[in-house]
């Protein structure tokens, strides 16, 4: 039996998403498919799988990503699917703990990838918002004002996410001063 659920997670809450998927797995619902805001679960043994998310360097269909995904699969994990550049992997819990990263450096590198993505998205929205704000003042188009407010709100939200990940990275960097 398969069950489909729709749920939204912010990109900076990916660990929250992993926790939710672990809680679903504990109820016997194991992730077997993903698409935008959509999670497909198969019923099975409770806690049979652990799921990890990773923001890939490139789109999953890119040869570099394909090679990476194959490498992860060869270590006993399964590639569940992906949403944009986010890849979902799962591994049977009876094969031991499942993590994609085992040292601070690679965790920091992953957060850097997320930070640059958020930075670009935030800047695009900020630029768009300011541009439309100018259009509103010059031409007085209320449509421009609406677009401007929307873009500025979105860039503010992304900015918030950026700061969340930024402080998380800072914590890791401080820890890195003491050990790996």
């Amino acid at each position: 039996m398969k069950r489909t659920l729709h749920k939204w997670f912010w990109a900076w809450d990916f660990d929250k998403e992993e926790k939710w998927l672990a809680a679903m797995s504990a109820r016997g619902l194991n992730l077997c498919g993903v698409s935008f805001c959509t999670y497909v679960f198969e019923e099975g043994a409770p806690g049979a799988y652990a799921v990890r998310l990773e923001l890939l360097d490139r789109m999953p269909s890119h040869p570099v990503s394909e090679q990476y995904i194959r490498f992860i699969e060869d270590t006993g994990a399964e590639y569940v699917g992906s949403v944009l550049r986010w890849a979902y992997f799962r591994k049977r819990t009876d094969a031991g703990p499942f993590d994609l990263y085992s040292d601070i450096d690679s965790r920091i590198r992953h957060l850097n990838r997320l930070l640059s993505l958020l930075f670009v998205l935030g800047m695009v929205n900020l630029g768009n918002g300011l541009n439309n704000l100018i259009q509103f003042f010059v031409h007085g188009l209320s449509f421009s004002l609406a677009v401007s407010i929307l873009c500025l709100l979105v860039s503010g939200l992304i900015g918030y996410g950026f700061l969340r990940i930024f402080s998380k990275r800072k914590r890791l960097q401080r820890e890195r001063l003491l050990h790996e």
Binding site: I72, D74, P97, D99, L100, S102, S106
Partner: peptide, 27 residues
């Protein structure tokens, strides 16, 4: 050794202490 072989060997050499995660190993 291939990737998974490295993970197993490192774990056994370190007496189970060091478990390399696949993403870290790949990098």
């Amino acid at each position: 050794l291939h990737g998974y072989g490295i993970m197993q060997k490192v774990e056994s050499m370190s007496g189970g202490r060091l478990r390399l995660a696949a993403g870290t190993l790949y990098g």
